[in-house]
Structures are given as C-alpha cells and as structure tokens.
C-alpha cells in the first residue's frame, strides 16, 4: 500500500495554467473524493497522479513498503473495454492471472457474461466490467475519473455500493473525481474541492458506514456545495 504526496504541484498547457499550488497527501488505503466544476482541472490532476502527464511544477511522490513503484489503475468515465475481446479477455488485460480475472468478474456479479462481447452489455454492466478489470490487477492505487457520470440514478447507486464494498474488502488507496457532491459524501473519508485550479476546501467526512442520508450527511453536502457554488 502506498501514500500519495503532492507538493506544490502545478500544471500548465502553454499559457493555460490548469493547476497551481496543489499541496496534499493521501494516506494508504484511504478514500478521497475530488469535486469541482467542469473544467476546473480534476481530470488533469488524476492524469498527473497516474503519470499520464508530467507536472510543470512541484513534486509527486509515492511512499510505501519497499522502493517499487505503485501499481496505479484508472477507471475512466467511458468504459474503454476492448470491443474485439470478450469480457473475460478484457478483464485479463489487467489481471495477474486467469483465476484473478474470474474472481473479480465474480465480485462484480457478472460471471455469467464472461464469453459475451462488450457490445452485448448495458452501460452499467460495462462499467462493472471496467471495475473488475481494474481490480483484477490488485492495484495499489485506484483512480476513478467520474466513472458513474453516464449511468442512470439507480445503476449509479448500485455501483456506489459495489465500489464501497470492494474498497472495504481490499483497501486500495482510492481517489474519486466526481461532480456529484452526494456521491463524494457517500463514498469518501475526505472531500477536496478544487476551483480555479487549486484546492479551496479539504474536509474530513466523519460518518459511519454505510452512510445514511441523515442530518450530518446533509451538513457535509451543503458545506461542500456552498464552497463550489460560492467560491
């Protein structure tokens, strides 16, 4: 398991400064949500952490047992399943071995679909497969880039429960980017609000799991929402 540490990170594309003074660290095994308006740099932050983009400023470090690099996986907003591979082969892309692939297919409850083509599944099922693919590789860090954004409300709640359950079992370090404040408060130990390229609020969510939509829940929701809309 790994901690993630960002020190004074900035990212610019030409003259466009997308991220600046990003300074936070994430504990191993924790679940952090990053929320903010569209275009505020959330995806860019995840891509920097996944090393798909270089930082323009500052440093990004991972610390964990040994000196090896952490295994980082991303779940994207679109499923990114390979259309010419059946479900099991798609999961095997990330898997340590075939058994691990089948096991994670079992975990997301779609073991009977192993021989299907991706195009034969619904949007929600495809995202389940994408989750299984990410988990099959036993990631140290799992980055979610609005993976539930395109799903209907019911499917989304199901997926949230599934993600929470699997995270509790496997304790991978999670970073969830979302524009849905309720989703952030439902899943995360901590919510970070980004606006104008930098951190505006860093809030610990001190609620027992599974989370009830009670007064305290609403308190957090309101506080975060006010920050996003007012800030």
């Amino acid at each position: 398991m790994f901690n993630i540490e960002l020190k004074d990170v900035g990212k610019s594309y030409g003259d466009n400064e997308v991220l600046r003074d990003i300074d936070f660290s994430v504990d191993k095994g924790s679940f952090t949500a990053i929320v903010g308006k569209s275009g505020c740099g959330k995806s860019t932050l995840l891509r920097v952490i996944a090393k798909l983009e270089e930082t323009s400023k500052g440093t990004l470090t991972f610390s964990g047992e040994g000196s090896k690099d952490p295994k980082i996986r991303i779940m994207f907003q679109d499923d990114r399943l390979i259309p010419w591979k059946n479900i099991l082969s798609n999961i095997s892309i990330g898997a340590v071995n075939k058994a691990a692939a089948k096991e994670s297919l079992q975990e997301v409850g779609l073991i009977d679909k192993e021989k299907d083509w991706p195009d034969q599944l619904s949007g929600g099922q495809k995202q389940r497969i994408a989750l299984a693919r990410a988990l099959a590789s036993n990631p140290d860090i799992l980055l979610f880039d609005e993976p539930l954004g395109a799903l209907d409300a019911l499917t989304r709640m199901e997926m949230q429960n599934l993600i929470e359950e699997l995270w509790q079992q496997q304790q991978f370090t999670s970073l969830l980017v979302t524009h849905d404040v309720t989703e952030a408060v439902t899943l995360a130990n901590r919510v970070i609000v980004i606006d104008k390229g930098t951190i505006q609020l860093d809030e610990k969510i001190d609620l027992p799991r599974p989370r009830e939509r009670d007064e305290k829940f609403t308190y957090y929701e309101k506080k975060i929402l006010n920050q996003i809309l007012g800030g």
Binding site: A50, R73, I74, R80, I82, K85, I93, G94
Partner: peptide
C-alpha cells in the same frame, strides 16, 4: 487513442499494445 491510453495505464508492453489493440483495431 483512448483504448491505447487505457492499455498503457494497464501496463501493456509496446508489443502487447500492438497485438491486442492496434492491430485488431485496424483490422
């Protein structure tokens, strides 16, 4: 390009990227 990006995030080597994604994708 999104599939290729996914492949590199999931640790595919250049050769595996070619045989699993690029070649079948252009078939």
């Amino acid at each position: 390009g999104k599939l290729i990006e996914m492949g590199s995030v999931y640790g595919l080597s250049r050769w595996k990227l070619f045989t699993n994604i690029i070649l079948p994708g252009s078939l």
